[in-house]
Amino acid sequence: MLELRLVQGSLLKKVLESIKDLVNDANFDCSSSGFSLQAMDSSHVALVALLLRSEGFEHYRCDRNMSMGMNLGNMSKMLRCAGNDDIITIKADDGSDTVTFMFESPTQDKISDFEMKLMDIDSEHLGIPEAEYQSIVTMPSAEFARICKDLSGIGDTVVISVTKEGVKFSTRGDIGTANIVCRQNTTVDKPEEATVINMSEPVSLTFALRYMNSFTKATTLSNTVTISLSSELPVVVEYKIAEMGYIRFYLAPKIEE
């Protein structure tokens, strides 16, 4: 038996909107510690890892570990029927081939339930080692989204270079080139407006902008984004989800042959 009650249901709506175009089908894993997902995109270039800790739910019951295969497009269709202020409860019985989403309006005058068919997904689980990153950039998520969108009008790839002075986003295409430098800026009024660079070594890596743009759909989940880079590793683009957990996108770089 599984029953998870999330008062801030809009978080789950936003999570789905941010990953449904990257991954078609995924297994949601439920354990006593939380509700999580790990899935790769169909080309095995990007991976999304989601964690919603059990403490973030108003009510969290998960009698035994469960893995529920869901089509994210269908799940998103159902969650779109929930109001932004609604409380969302996810329910499933042991061994059942369906999951139920229940939506309650804040005033309790409207209660809906949607039952969705589960599916068997033979997904490949990757072990992600803990790593020390050479450069970690934290910046306003809206600024990062703006940069990715702007650059994708000019080129297909972005070179992200981090030095002590700042982080540079560069692209080139048929019409020309573009460079955007964001300097470390910790003297802003609000901490979420700061650009903070923690660098042990300068790093420069190339990534497909199509994926970066897809990751920025999670911008609504957090005011800030953290980009962790190392020359030997995929980049990690992380959005914290309130007090509950995170959504992390891993993207393998493009390498000059």
């Binding site: 490949e124 990757l126 072990g127 770089p253 493009k254 390498i255 000059e256």
Partner: peptide, 14 residues
Amino acid sequence: CIEQIDLGSYFMRF
């Protein structure tokens, strides 16, 4: 020529 690397080459597969 710039080649896209596969994620599996970085992470352990289970």
